[in-house]
């Protein structure tokens, strides 16, 4: 079977709703595909999910491969991977993008291993470019540049897979912008029939509890984040006070999460949530690249740190060299006084 070269996006969904990250990736895939003259294909597995296919098309896909089967009703590694592996072997996509969700990160390595192809986790950017290998004196054209902060925090690595296909990458939610839906876009939906093997059902899901996250970092207009420089629960409570006053949410660096100061749901950064608030206050966060990659698009950044050389200061609009435990109360006090004045006009 000859098909046009394609970029695939794994379409993950729960309770009839497509995960935002998958639509974000569909938009990115569209951009890359237009550059290359490829098709964008959504891979949609589930049961009674045909209605979701049009949404994928409206966000930029040319085609949707639809595997609709009772065995695919809830995500399980092996049945889902079976569909992806079989279809990828048959149709040979050039690129395969997967959302960096818990399920996406369970699925992608399983598929990559079976296809014996390269996979890069948590990319913060995807581009198309060439790759010259001196040893072979050969230039590989139009590879997927999989760009991610690397080990070390001071470095950004560009990873390529010159010899294997598909070129696979996972990307966290919020890293790419979700395109607006275009209800006028049309595309085709092609049903595929899974050919399961008995071993694919080795695991059964007995129960599932979805925690409705009360943390809405991604869309918060203001985020007040704490890091390793916040040394006590009292100081962390100041972040919450300030966030409440500003109508925002509390965020955290990985250091604060690892220290047990706050739940991981609050983590901002490459392996946490990527945010673009109107105002980002970084209190006691030194600013490792993994953290900055998740917040450097914020409109205004206030950095508070005792270390005048903290990297965070280099991207901050307001630099306050001082102890967060002393500076935060000053900001809180100023805001309280302002709101008092507004409530009680003289």
């Amino acid at each position: 079977m000859t098909e046009r070269k394609s970029i695939w996006v794994f379409i993950e969904h729960t309770d009839g709703q497509i995960a935002d990250v998958c639509l974000e990736l569909t938009g990115k895939a569209r951009e890359l595909a237009d550059q290359l003259g490829y098709d964008v294909v959504g891979l949609l597995c589930g049961h009674n999910v045909e209605s979701l296919a049009q949404e994928v098309i409206h966000h930029g896909a040319d085609r949707v491969l639809l595997a609709d089967d009772p065995e695919l009703a809830v995500y399980r590694t092996l049945p889902y991977a079976r569909v992806a592996i079989d279809e990828a072997r048959r149709r040979k996509p050039e690129i395969f993008l997967i959302g960096g969700t818990p399920n996406g990160r369970d699925f992608a390595p399983r598929v990559a291993s079976a296809l014996r192809c390269g996979l890069t986790a948590d990319c913060t950017d995807l581009q198309i470019g060439d790759y010259y290998v001196k040893k072979e004196d050969k230039t590989y054209k139009n590879l997927l540049y999989q760009i991610r902060p690397a080990f070390g925090g001071n470095l950004i690595a560009t990873i390529v897979n010159p010899n294997t296909r598909p070129q696979m990458a996972t990307v966290r939610e919020g890293v790419m912008r979700k395109p607006a839906a275009d209800a006028g876009r049309t595309g085709t939906v092609e049903a595929v029939t899974p050919s399961f093997e008995p071993g694919d059902f080795a695991l059964e899901v007995l129960s599932r509890q979805v925690r409705k996250s009360t943390v809405k970092l991604k869309d918060a207009p203001v985020i007040v984040s704490g890091g390793a420089g916040i040394s006590s629960a009292e100081e962390f409570a100041l972040l919450q006070d300030l966030a409440n006053l500003l109508g925002g949410e509390v965020g955290a660096s990985r250091a604060a999460v690892d220290a047990g100061m706050i739940d991981r749901a609050h983590q901002v950064g490459q392996t946490g949530t990527t945010v673009r608030p109107r105002l980002y206050i970084a209190a006691g966060i030194s600013g490792a690249i993994q953290h900055r990659a998740g917040m450097d698009q914020s409109s205004k950044i206030i950095a508070i740190n005792t270390d005048p050389n903290a990297p965070m200061f280099q991207i901050a609009h307001y630099r306050i060299v001082g102890d967060a435990g002393e500076v935060l109360p000053l900001i809180i006090k100023t805001l309280r006084e302002r709101s008092m004045e507004q409530r009680d006009p003289e």
């Binding site: 790759y131 560009t158 990873i159 991207i315 307001y318 002393e326 500076v327």
Partner: peptide, 23 residues
């Protein structure tokens, strides 16, 4: 290893218009 490192960039922080505020 199918993945290869094409390049490593040291991060150049974008200098923003910024102000130093005393505490």
């Amino acid at each position: 290893s199918p993945t290869q490192v094409h390049k490593i960039n040291f991060v150049v922080l974008e200098s923003t218009e910024s102000k130093t505020i005393s505490p």
